[in-house]
């Protein structure tokens, strides 16, 4: 499924003295199959944007009314996820949500059931068009827990609250992907985890990308994480999309990014500094390529 947004606006507390524009004329397309990154600091509108993707936030319909009243052409906002038109009130949002999985920040805080099994089964049962058989539920839960790297038989009867932090997060992710969504959106999936936990989550996401979920969208404020994992990145700042580029091209704009108050990956920073010293390292800013290119450059130096 393709995600297509055009001229998307969103204002919190519209009409109150606290009104705050969170999205300003955002246009962004994510193709099927991408591992897409959205970066920006707190309050840049990145979370607001992704919450639109499964209709947790709606395209304001009052805008349509406004245009209708004045007989002006209808608003030019477009928001489509695959076949679903999210500007249309009649869209089946439940069907949409089973196709677009959403993992919120600190998803372990949404666990509620007595057992891991029940918690993971929650979404599956909710989205099933007919009441699923016991076997269907079991299979779905087993698959979900297995793919997130947990031992089904070991954890299924445990209370989710007795697990470790990293395990809880994986159970929470299992609870979202149990419906095998085509698009998986994750808001800060690695926040609060220790280095090893972070690495495991990113590995899990690549595993999912290769198997269940066609597209993955991660929202993050960690440039290194984005640079190492994503095919393309959108940079949000003050409710606007500043750039949409593959990381490699994005970080040639390192200087502008830094002036926007955004971080750039360490490798990009080093390249920037090296350039100032008259050494031009051409690389795609992943750590591996940076090392390769730097060493190659040094090697050439030796050859001279």
């Amino acid at each position: 499924m393709r995600i297509q947004a055009e001229h998307l606006n969103y204002t919190y507390n519209q009409g109150s003295p606290f009104a705050k524009a969170a999205l300003k004329d955002v246009s962004l397309t994510v193709e099927e199959g991408e591992f897409f990154g959205i970066i920006g600091h707190t309050g840049s509108g990145k979370s607001t944007f992704v919450q639109h993707l499964n209709a947790l936030l709606r395209v304001p319909t009052s805008l349509k009314k406004y245009h209708k009243k004045r007989k002006s052409p209808p608003s030019d906002t477009v928001l489509k996820v695959g076949e679903f038109d999210l500007t249309d009130k009649k869209t089946d949002f439940n069907a949409l949500r089973s196709k677009v999985g959403m993992v919120m920040q600190y998803p372990e805080y949404q666990l509620f059931a007595e057992t891991v099994f029940d918690d993971v089964a929650f979404g599956y049962k909710n989205f099933a068009p007919q009441k699923p058989t016991k076997e269907q539920v079991e299979n779905a839960v087993r698959d979900a827990l297995t793919i997130v790297g947990l031992d089904y038989n070991e954890v299924k009867d445990m209370s989710p609250f007795d697990l470790s932090g990293g395990q809880k997060r994986r159970v929470a992710i299992a609870g979202v992907i149990v419906t095998k969504p085509e698009i998986l959106v994750l808001d800060e999936p690695a926040a609060g985890l220790d280095p090893l936990g972070k690495q495991e989550i990113m590995e899990l996401l690549h595993r999912l990308h290769a198997s269940w979920c066609k597209s993955i969208l991660i929202v993050s404020h960690d440039m290194d994480e984005i640079a190492e994992n994503c095919t393309r990145v959108a940079v949000f700042s003050e409710g606007e999309v500043k750039y949409v580029l593959p990381p490699k091209e994005l970080f040639t704009h390192s200087e502008e990014l830094l002036s926007l108050g955004l971080d750039v990956p360490l490798t990009a920073k080093v390249c920037l500094e090296l350039k100032k010293l008259g050494i031009d390292v051409k690389c795609d800013f992943t750590t591996e390529d940076f090392l390769k290119q730097t060493l190659a450059l040094a090697g050439k130096g030796v050859a001279k």
């Binding site: 360490l266 920073k269 080093v270 920037l272 500094e273 090296l274 100032k276 010293l277 008259g278 050494i279 090392l291 730097t294 060493l295 450059l297 040094a298 090697g299 130096g301």
Partner: peptide, 22 residues
């Protein structure tokens, strides 16, 4: 990889190290 850089704390000093070695 054969580039004898010293351990540093930030991008700027690493760039200097690399430049020196190169």
């Amino acid at each position: 990889g054969g580039l004898p850089v010293c351990d540093t704390l930030d991008a700027k000093s690493l760039a200097k190290e690399i430049a020196q070695c190169v």
